[in-house]
Amino acid sequence: MTMRTMLITSALLLAATPALAQEDVDCANATTQADMNICSDKDYEAADAELNTVYKQTVAAMRAKDVELADISADYVGAEEALKKAQRAWIGYRDGQCELAGFEARGGSMEPMLVSGCLAQLTTARTEELKALLEPTEN
């Protein structure tokens, strides 16, 4: 099963769960596997939302850097494209790595939690990497 198929299947399973039940999950005290799966997915969704916000800011910053560098030499331009290339590569790495993480409980009820947990962890780490690009460097 590919990562895409697994994510679609997980999404369909979550959609089948009543929305009210998902909202009522106390993630600080989740005890059932279903609740832990829901909470892990919520963690990933929050991490992904933050990543998207920071990524947009980083693209804008790299675009501005390209404008600055163009004044020096056209040969220096490319920060925005390098960021986008790195992000595409990172997404492939993240998806593959997290699919692999799910094999610890392949086919079991814990697999979605392992995949979502991995996605949240790697996404949070990538967000920090992007934030570092936004910080001014000392010369």
Rank of each mutant, 00 (worst) to 15 (best):
A19I: 07
A19D: 10
A19C: 04
A19L: 10
L20N: 06
L20T: 14
A21S: 15
Q22K: 11
Q22R: 11
E23W: 07
E23Q: 14
E23D: 13
D24R: 14
V25S: 01
D26Y: 03
D26T: 01
D26F: 02
C27I: 00
C27P: 00
A28I: 08
A28P: 09
A28R: 08
N29Y: 08
N29D: 12
N29R: 15
A30M: 04
A30Q: 04
A30C: 06
T31K: 12
T32N: 07
T32E: 03
T32R: 05
Q33W: 00
Q33T: 10
Q33I: 04
A34G: 09
A34M: 12
A34D: 13
A34W: 07
D35R: 04
D35N: 07
D35Q: 07
M36D: 00
M36T: 04
N37S: 05
I38W: 08
I38Y: 08
I38A: 05
C39W: 01
C39D: 01
C39M: 02
D41Y: 02
D41H: 00
D41V: 02
K42C: 01
K42Q: 07
K42G: 02
K42W: 02
D43L: 10
Y44G: 06
D48S: 12
D48N: 13
E50V: 09
L51F: 13
N52V: 08
N52M: 10
T53M: 06
T53S: 12
V54M: 09
V54S: 07
V54F: 02
Y55P: 01
K56R: 12
Q57I: 04
Q57P: 03
Q57W: 02
T58N: 05
T58V: 09
T58M: 06
V59A: 05
V59D: 06
A60R: 00
A60F: 01
A61C: 04
A61N: 00
M62C: 07
R63N: 12
R63A: 11
A64R: 03
A64S: 08
A64G: 03
K65E: 03
D66A: 15
V67Q: 03
V67W: 00
E68I: 00
E68S: 08
E68W: 00
L69K: 15
A70S: 14
A70Q: 06
I72E: 12
S73D: 15
S73L: 14
A74P: 07
D75R: 11
Y76H: 14
V77F: 10
V77L: 12
V77N: 05
A79P: 04
E80L: 10
E80F: 12
E80V: 09
E81W: 05
E81Y: 06
A82N: 13
